[in-house]
């Protein structure tokens, strides 16, 4: 019974999301688009975290994807959609190259190196003004779909849905066992014959490419890039906070976290123009201290223990 209900709910939710632009106003639609972008980043960050590697490179790949898309679009006359796909491939290629060096590192060394790589990306982009517009950035004459917000919404929605699908595939297929065992104990994973580097590289490339595509779509939506805004650490911090609040190591955790924090910060923005992002910092600290499993993880645990108790009582 439960197995038939779940797919129906999913399909209904997707249909509802697809037809949403016909019912809600432009403002709410815009908020949803931003939330879906961050949701993609949060999920892709979490995918890497599931292998036990804490990556601080989200903002870097996001920014490179954004620049790749804008430059191919304005200089080489790519169609915006093609340029978004190109950005994904380009970032995947970079991730492949970097992965060979970076994925041998562990713990804080991996995290710090990815953070440093983000900085290197932004310095490089700032210093080749002929291609990237330097510190002042670059503007393209036309935003994607000429600013048709419904079409942009569908594009972003499909990216978010694809990311959710990939994340669920990671959690349900055989890869799931490999990823979890790498996170829990690398030595055991290796002695069970798991190709640790191979799996890490695979996840790294996929998650980076998703971040690059998210960056490409985001900038195509606004038609503008600059080193300050495109490589802003917000694109790292916000997704991290979202995944943590919802619950790491799960798909629905990031989805819930993105929705909760996305709407909360949108509301705070209205009453607090400066520093409304403080909610993200406070959330990260509180969650780490008191609720390491996040909202989704904690409720799931509660439900499971409740069921077990019920079962043992009835027996």
């Amino acid at each position: 019974m439960k197995k038939t209900i779940f797919p129906i709910i999913t399909i209904l939710a997707i249909v509802l999301l697809i037809f949403l632009p016909y019912f809600i106003g432009a403002y709410l639609l815009h908020v949803l688009m931003t939330i879906f972008i961050y949701m993609t980043l949060a999920l892709s960050w979490d995918m890497m975290l599931r292998t036990g590697q804490l990556s601080f490179g989200v903002a870097g790949f996001f920014g490179v994807g954004a620049y790749a898309s804008i430059i191919t679009c304005s200089r080489f006359g790519f169609n915006p959609l093609v340029s978004i796909l190109f950005a994904g491939f380009f970032v995947a290629l970079i991730a492949l190259g970097l992965g060979f060096a970076v994925l041998k590192l562990r713990d804080i060394y991996f995290s710090i190196t990815t953070l440093a790589i983000t900085m290197v990306f932004s310095v490089i982009i700032r210093n080749i003004p002929k291609l990237t517009g330097g510190a002042s950035g670059k503007v393209i004459p036309n935003v994607i779909f000429n600013g048709d917000s419904a079409k942009t919404y569908w594009l972003i929605l499909s990216l978010a849905l694809i990311t959710i699908l990939i994340s669920e595939m990671f959690n349900r297929t055989k890869i799931h066992f490999a990823i979890n065992s790498i996170r829990n104990d690398e030595i055991i994973a290796r002695s069970s014959g798991i190709n640790i580097f191979g799996y890490l590289l695979f996840v790294f490339i996929i998650s980076s490419a998703l971040q690059g595509i998210a960056g490409a779509i985001y900038t195509q939506q606004y038609g503008f890039v600059s080193p300050e805004t495109t490589f802003s650490l917000d694109f790292l911090l916000l997704p991290m906070a979202m995944a943590l609040v919802g619950g790491i190591y799960s798909t629905w955790g990031s989805v819930i976290g993105a929705l909760v924090l996305g709407f909360a910060s949108e509301y705070l923005k209205l009453i607090m123009p400066y520093g409304h992002l403080i909610i993200y910092g406070i959330m990260i600290v509180l969650i780490i201290l008191f609720l390491p499993k996040g909202i989704y993880g904690t409720t799931k645990d509660k439900i499971i223990t409740h069921k077990i108790e019920k079962k043992s009582l009835s027996e």
């Binding site: 804490l54 804080i108 991290m240 403080i278 910092g281 406070i282 990260i284 600290v285 780490i288 201290l289």
Partner: peptide
Amino acid sequence: LLLTFGISMII
């Protein structure tokens, strides 16, 4: 790492 990152953001 995440905790100190959060502290950094709060400050």
